[in-house]
Amino acid sequence: MNQRSLAIAGIVALALLPPALQALDQVFYIGFAARILIYAMAASSLNLILGNGGMLSFGHAAFIGAGAYTVGILAAEGVGSAWVAWPLAIVCAAAAALVIGAISLRTRGVYFIMITLAFAQMVYYILVSMKAYGGDDGLNLGSRSAVGFGLDLKDEFTWYYTCLALLAVVLYLLNRMTAARFGRALEAIRENETRMEAIGFATYRHKLVAFVIAGAIAGLAGALLANQSSFVSPKLMHWTQSGTLMVMVIIGGVGHRYGGLVGALVLLGLEELIAEFTLYSQLGVGMVLLGIVLFAPQGIAGLFQRSATRPLP
């Protein structure tokens, strides 16, 4: 099966999920599936810079937080329209990514990991102490954003299909982008930045553009996440959240076009499954992660098909 029919089959399967769950009287899992879709979006955005661009950002949760808090703060100020809040969430996250990226991308390797982490920590502590917007207690949205057209996002079906549609659009755009000159250049920079510079390519600017795009998508994911829980809190941008996103990407397959989706599905599914059998899910999750690193170095998606791009050196 080629990539296109695979993608279409995947979308059909995902589209049939809610009625199937309803038939089984398991409506709870529709919300759970929507959550996986949102995390898939966030992880895919990280995969763009981490997998395709080789930028190991340990602060990606900051952009999710920026998007989520944009929605949260607007809701607290009485602006509940998705048509205002979500684009603004994307813009805010992109702006944050522009500032953080512009400074962070001066560094390489481990230093880049740490400086992105530092920025995320700054955002985290500022929000924890910001009492006007709930501080550590977070902010309750009251209700999900309003979209009009007679649609109510509180309805689990509507919500799921909204998330699915947005994820499909994001994945489509990301795939187009990575297949085009932009993506090729990004991968070339990952493989040999000096060489790209030598042939006259503005590598810094190119990486920054990718970083901002990833931030913007993470912002949208953040806006959705805020709606999913009707709640935002600084925990959204705690460093462990950035770690979780990274883990999703690695599990799913670094640089693989569906790595983020697979990773989110496997990790969240695994946590849910293990939590069913034991209270101490962390031990099980830890063991499985370790197993994946040791025995499936290309991630899960890499086990099933040859990766479209080569793994990191």
Partner: peptide, 12 residues
Amino acid sequence: RDHLAQVLATFA
């Protein structure tokens, strides 16, 4: 292995 794998394994 690359830094990513190390981060994941030691996070585990």
